[in-house]
Nucleic acid binder design. Structure first.
Lengths: 231, 231
DNA sequence: CGCGGCTTTGATGTTCATCAAGTAAAGTGG
DNA sequence: CCACTTTACTTGATGAACATCAAAGCCGCG
């Protein structure tokens, strides 16, 4: 749980391009002193809504979900993020506290960079600022577009959307293990758990997918796409 | 339509604090050469989804709505923005094209700053970058939170939410003229026009509000709040 | 004055959440 | 390793919430 991994190899880190491509040698050295790599096991919380923002975090490997508690107390899943995407960093410049909680859906490694360092780089390195701004904006755009898309689909459309999303964006494979419970899917697309299950069953009976526990295989991608769009 | 107003008085502009507080004298002078003030009449389009981003725009006076076309072709209203808020600038750093359309709900004045100038300032002035980043992030957060909030409310809750939103955030008055049609309200909170009207009628019959055409007066704020939250 | 758009209300049917009951799977303690 | 408990999943039945359709009233505008 939450183990700190050493030593620093930021300079040759495969992930350097993703976020820190604009930093020079010296800055990367500094980065080493300002970051910690932490590993989380499936189900562990990476950070919690309402906590003070101390680190800029991004996912190096694994899978994570972004969620919040709604006013009613239920969980609302906002996004599922893959490696190289930021984790609860949508709001690190807009406030003092994390807006969302993040937890690991699979065993994950997270790179945590002290927020002061990020701020300092942001202030002093215009290209870094522009790059980071662009990436965070893009993620915000995606979340907003997705939320609006989901809202105007019917049940079947939403479920089809999630299946296609997992297939295309997360696993890039027609067959995959669903990393979340049925209830979490329901919290993601805003419907009841029972109806998520029911709709999946219908897709199965109609021969659109094959289901074996947590494993889903997409058989008829085209039809799912039609259902998702028309939804 | 789209008249250009001169001369430049950015230095003493009341709105300078809102966005450009971190610019020095010299930069403000430059700003003058890189901005145009445009006025729009009610209903006119300020910018259009899909167009190339050329200006950073913010509302000096009036009222505007942010919206997009959903895959089905209907309009989805994303936000209603007051003066000093950015207009279709959520995505100016993430892509080449505007993600959303913006139109004037009332006669409005928009300050349009060349995007190259904003980028240049962003690159060269760390404090400006940090400030702008914070503001855009905050607006993104707000949109996301609002969309998620609305999603898990029932019809009455959504309508109550909109009325309270207009009262508290937009007009700061218990009595106001609704700046949008019933259909636009429906597009904003994701329900049918008929049911928006029906719900408003019910609130009227229950004595929560008084309605006279486009004018709404809130009588029982407390009860509306309960309906909105419980929704 | 008449036309077209926005609004309103009622009636109808569909979609979806909820409830209930049962089964499978996954921990937990002896 | 097995009985026990709990948690996740599944399916059907029911009713509530909501969209849709239709018809009529209202209002501004040429």
């Amino acid at each position: 749980m939450n183990k700190i991994i050493k030593p620093c190899d930021c300079e040759h880190c495969d992930f350097r391009d993703a976020v820190f491509s604009t930093l020079d040698e010296q800055s990367v050295m500094e980065l080493c002193d300002n970051k910690e790599e932490r590993s989380f096991r499936k189900g562990e919380i990476i950070n919690q809504e309402g906590e003070r923002i101390t680190y800029f975090k991004y996912l190096k490997s694994g899978l994570a979900k972004l969620y919040r508690k709604s006013s009613g107390g239920e969980e609302q899943v906002i996004a599922i993020t893959r490696p190289l995407e930021f984790v609860s960093n949508l709001s690190i410049f807009s406030g003092e506290k994390y807006q969302y909680s993040v937890s690991a859906l699979e065993d994950s490694v997270v790179c945590c960079v002290k927020i002061e360092f990020i701020r300092r780089m942001f202030m002093n390195n215009g290209r870094f600022a522009l790059e980071l701004m662009g990436r965070i904006s893009a993620m915000n755009d995606k979340v907003i577009a997705q939320t609006l898309d989901i809202r105007q689909k019917n049940l079947a459309g939403r479920v089809a959307f999630v299946i296609l999303y997992l297939m295309n964006d997360i696993y890039k494979s027609r067959i995959f293990e669903v990393p979340v419970s049925r209830k979490e899917i329901a919290d993601y697309i805003g419907m009841s758990t029972a109806n998520v299950i029911r709709t999946i069953s219908e897709f199965k009976h109609d021969g659109l997918i094959r289901v074996e526990g947590k494993t889903i295989e997409v058989i008829n991608k085209e039809k799912l796409e039609i259902i998702s769009i028309r939804g």
